[in-house]
Computed example of a mutant assay.
Amino acid sequence: MISYQPTADLYASADITFKNMRSYYEHHSVNWEQSTIHEQIVDLENWDIFFNGSVVGAIRLAFDSDGCYIRDLQVSETFQNKGIGAAALAECERLAIKAGVNQLRLRVLKISPAYHLYIRNNFEVDKEEDRFFYMSRQIS
């Protein structure tokens, strides 16, 4: 069973991101550490993703007048490809609707397999840069 709770331990949550993203950071020669990630997420709306009672991922959101920006969606590697990412996107939509906004936005590395998750969930590429796709979708 998948559930969500406000993040209890931001350092542990940052560690999930660090472990998931390490190969991408190395690929792009980005020198990020867990402490750097923690600094970046402390002011976001942070949610733990639970699967059968254990924390397996994180959702990080920022809201503005244009909508909900999914700053980070991480699922620990051993729990990927089990529908948890798609369920987490549905939770992002629920939280966005609750906040009164009608658009989800995100940025994803071009080399990330998460890009395919977003395409399957009706996100469209709005623009691209060297390393990133910027994607969005309307919600109702």
Rank of each mutant, 00 (worst) to 15 (best):
N46S: 01
N46P: 00
N46F: 00
W47P: 01
D48W: 00
I49P: 01
I49M: 01
I49C: 01
I49V: 10
F50N: 02
F51H: 12
F51T: 00
N52C: 05
G53P: 01
G53Q: 02
G53K: 02
G53W: 11
V55Y: 01
V55Q: 03
V56A: 03
V56I: 10
G57A: 04
G57Q: 05
G57H: 04
A58L: 09
I59A: 00
I59F: 00
I59H: 01
R60F: 00
L61T: 08
L61F: 01
L61I: 10
A62C: 07
F63S: 03
F63C: 03
F63G: 05
F63Y: 10
D64L: 14
S65N: 08
G67K: 06
C68R: 06
Y69Q: 05
I70R: 07
I70A: 02
R71D: 00
R71W: 01
R71H: 03
L73M: 11
Q74E: 08
S76C: 09
S76R: 15
E77D: 09
T78K: 15
T78G: 03
F79M: 10
F79C: 09
Q80D: 02
Q80L: 06
N81M: 06
N81T: 13
N81V: 12
K82V: 05
K82Q: 12
K82I: 03
K82P: 01
K82G: 05
G83E: 09
G83P: 02
G83W: 13
I84Q: 09
I84F: 07
A86V: 08
A86N: 12
A86T: 15
A87F: 04
A88L: 07
L89F: 09
A90N: 12
E91R: 02
E93G: 09
E93P: 06
E93R: 11
E93K: 14
E93D: 09
L95K: 02
A96E: 07
A96W: 08
A96M: 10
I97G: 10
A99I: 05
A99C: 09
G100T: 06
G100R: 10
G100L: 14
V101W: 13
N102T: 13
N102A: 13
Q103R: 14
L104N: 10
L104Q: 05
L104V: 10
R105P: 01
R105V: 06
L106Q: 12
L106T: 14
L106F: 08
L106V: 11
R107Q: 08
V108I: 10
V108K: 15
V108M: 07
V108R: 14
V108F: 08
K110P: 04
K110T: 11
I111W: 04
S112G: 06
P113H: 15
P113M: 14
Y115R: 15
Y115V: 15
Y115I: 13
H116R: 15
L117M: 12
L117H: 13
L117P: 04
L117A: 11
